[in-house]
């Protein structure tokens, strides 16, 4: 079984590391590392697992972003992907999910026919979970989101799709788009040999011209949504610290305060 697998991945700032300047109420982003988005690492890992059992599987990772997103592709190649493509062009800057999916769908079509496209469910900087389904729509393919278990037998795919209170078992056929969550697998580390080869790999950059894409469908101006205002929520007034001498006295003081507020009997 020789499979062609495409993985969509995104380089994101590690938003868990971001802090707010308590005085100026602004973001402190110095020292915040750029990382491979968590759900996308699960997408790549699932593709690599297919390759583990079917070595003639070919994995292409596509990312869209600024030129430095090439680092992410090197990381993916070092984990075991065969090929990386960087979609990057100033004309694509400021794209919302609709415009982003136009560019990514064009890149997928340029890569050519494939069996499975894996994408992370959502990226931690935007948390929209929209690009995967929107790429599937632009490509006219069936999708399953929130995939937590995956099996393939020829053209037949069986997945478990996570729900809030359980899961669904879903069958479908290749080609298709699947979005992945962390319950699906544990991403592997880069290998030393992989890193050695990856830094020497030839990674093409495709812009709007290479993608032959209509410029009225990508970028900030083409995006149906735009940012009207953005702000940091005002911090709440600082509360009361309870600082009695003993643990028991602290508990007593807390309960007295809760009682005062009629929150408890």
């Amino acid at each position: 079984m020789s499979l062609k697998v495409i993985v969509l991945a995104k380089q994101v700032p590690d938003t868990n590391e971001v802090k707010i300047d308590p005085v100026k109420n602004t973001l402190i982003r110095e020292g915040v590392p750029s990382i491979l988005n968590h759900d996308d690492a699960n997408a790549l890992e699932e593709a690599l697992k297919i390759k583990d059992s079917h070595p003639d599987t070919h994995i292409t990772v596509i990312t869209m972003g600024p030129p430095q997103a090439k680092d992410l592709l090197i990381e993916c190649l070092a984990m075991g992907a065969d090929e990386g493509v960087l979609v990057s062009d100033r004309a694509l800057g400021g794209s919302d999910t609709w415009a982003t999916s136009n560019a990514l769908a064009a890149a997928v079509e340029k890569v050519g026919e494939f069996d499975i496209l894996f994408a992370g469910r959502q990226a931690i900087d935007g948390d929209t979970a929209q690009v995967g389904p929107q790429v599937a729509e632009k490509l006219g393919l069936p999708q399953v989101t929130y995939v937590r278990e995956f099996e393939i037998d020829g053209k037949d795919i069986t997945v478990k799709r996570a729900l809030e209170d359980g899961y669904e078992v879903i069958k479908l056929q290749t080609p298709c788009v699947l979005t992945t969550i962390k319950e699906l697998n544990t991403p592997r580390y880069m290998s030393v040999g992989g890193i050695y080869d990856a830094v020497k790999a030839d990674i093409p950059t495709w812009g709007a011209k290479e993608l032959e894409i209509d410029l009225s469908t990508v970028g900030l101006d083409a995006s149906p949504t735009n940012v009207y205002r953005s702000f940091t929520p005002a911090p709440k007034a600082k509360g009361v610290m309870i600082e009695k001498d003993t643990v028991e006295e602290n508990a007593e003081a807390l309960l007295a305060l809760l009682k005062e507020k009629y929150i408890i009997a």
Binding site: T15, I124, D125, G126, D127, V227, Y228, S230, F231, P233
Partner: peptide, 10 residues
């Protein structure tokens, strides 16, 4: 937006 670090109105 941005991991809940800022709010954006769209």
């Amino acid at each position: 937006a941005f991991g809940g670090n800022i709010m954006a109105t769209i």
